[in-house]
């Protein structure tokens, strides 16, 4: 359908108004919300994500696309519920205690949402007990932890230990990321996955929920 490709292209160009108009047009033409989101909105974000991973586009383009995706999704939210369309999985994401950096986490959130995942964003400087409570409440398949600083990365390990103490560790996959992190560090603290960039994080998360 040409209009779905148009929606995908408009998302990639970050044109929110155009996305809204096209999504409305697609609704008016009687298309199913699932098709609009899968073959239009998420397809566009997915293709942009690949270009971002390949260093062909940059953060401002991703932000503009995520904004357009959000506007389009907002418009069909009600229809998605009516049709019984559910997210492909759920993620709780947070920047750990002591760390106020959020751009990396936000990029991961956007990429995950652009992959059809529901993301509960707890924000920054989140203590381990709050994260554990959120895992208990939201029952996500994935917990994603971010830290930018060498002085806060150890807090990711504290969260994992807190999950164990609460008896929740085997109920959730733990992903870690952030500038100073490495695969070795991820292995050392017992995380399930490390992702070096936002697109890879979304790919890993999708793989986890499809297991």
């Amino acid at each position: 359908m040409a209009i779905l490709e148009d929606i995908s292209q408009a998302v990639q160009k970050g044109r929110s108004k155009e996305v809204v108009a096209l999504v409305q047009q697609a609704i008016d033409e009687g298309m199913e919300a699932k098709d609009i989101i899968d073959a239009g909105l998420l397809k566009g974000m997915g293709e942009l994500g690949v270009r971002f991973k390949n260093n062909e586009v940059y953060v401002p383009e991703v932000l503009m696309a995520a904004k357009a995706l959000g506007r389009g999704t907002e418009l069909i939210k009600g229809k998605l519920v009516e049709e019984g369309v559910k997210p492909v999985g759920k993620v709780v994401i947070a920047t750990v205690r002591g760390d106020l950096h959020d751009i990396g986490k936000s990029l991961v959130r956007m990429m995950m949402e652009g992959s059809g995942l529901e993301v509960v964003d707890l924000g920054v400087d989140v203590p381990e007990d709050v994260i554990v409570a959120a895992v208990n409440e939201h029952k996500p398949q994935i917990l994603a932890l971010s830290s930018l600083l060498t002085t806060t990365m150890e807090q990711q390990s504290v969260v994992i230990e807190a999950l164990k103490a609460a008896g929740l560790r085997d109920q959730v996959k733990v992903m870690v990321g952030g500038a100073p992190l490495t695969q070795d560090y991820s292995d050392k603290i017992g995380a399930d996955a490390y992702a070096p960039d936002a697109y890879s994080a979304a790919e890993v998360a999708k793989a986890f929920v499809s297991e």
Partner: peptide, 12 residues
Amino acid sequence: GMQRDPFMSPEM
């Protein structure tokens, strides 16, 4: 700069 690439394109 970010960990990989600049925040914005060279054109920008």
